[in-house]
Amino acid sequence: MFQGKNGKPDIKYIKEKAMAIRKDILEMLNAAGSGHPGGSLSAADFFAALYFAELRHDPKNPKWPDRDRVFLSKGHACPVLYAALAESGYFPVPELLTLRKLHSRLQGHPHMLKTPGIEISAGSLGQGLGIANGTAIGLKMDGSDSRVFCVMGDGELQEGSVWEAIMTSSHRKLDNLVAWVDYNNLQIDGKVEDVKGIAPLAEKFKAFNWHVIEIDGHSIEETLKAFKEARETKGKPTMIVAKTEKGRGVCFMENKPEWHGVVPNKEQLEEALKGLCVIEGPSKSQIENADA
């Protein structure tokens, strides 16, 4: 687990890492020519907080038995995971530019047999939480105190298999499991609430006997507080419902479903990198819209 000065997480450092992750995401997607920026950017702050403050891991020893596990269930958001892994030192940052290329270790959707630090192969939605349950059960059987983090999309919650898994986590009292939902309310075809609504989300998870924490998913402070609360919660799995914005940090991508699976060209990349900024609370684009 990374510790800043005085054994406390260094918020400034995490925010810098979140920025680095965003820059990596944009650059690798531009180089790849295809991929998913929206749902990668919305999870960047979470991944920075996870990898640079919360996680017990050793980038030089990816298979360390005592490590915490991170399962990215929404596999299409792998650029954010690849960036977090590279920034942590699992592999060199320049390798990110091989994303989606033939014989690259960085497949279009993550493959555990190719990339150091990738725990599961994913890309078909709705499977990660079930796998996380299995590993959480296995770790408990072995008396391990390692924990499992599962990252899910909100659109993904339309998959029935997710709800099979949600029942299992609480039925088996998997308090070594933390799930994080990227609640950006956008999916390919539009707003989640228009396509097939999932609200009220927190109430649903509560009804399924989860410990639920609602946060601003772009607030590092709130994310760290939620991690602490999850660590202290016994007898129940914890679900962090993180209100986020798709494309967060890049003004022209924020809250635009069309940026789910379209990547920036050279000019857009330059513009994005120049204006890259994340602020607490409502996004830059939200404020601008309010002014208009």
Binding site: R69, E119, I120, G126, Q127, G128, L129, G130, I131, A132, N133, G134, T135, A136, I137, G138, L139, M141, D142, G160, S161, E164, A165, M167, T168
Partner: peptide, 16 residues
């Protein structure tokens, strides 16, 4: 819940 059987089994296999 057959889908859950297989996903859970995958997770268990990851722990040996």
């Amino acid at each position: 819940a057959e889908q859950d059987v297989i996903a859970t089994a995958a997770g268990l296999a990851l722990t040996g």
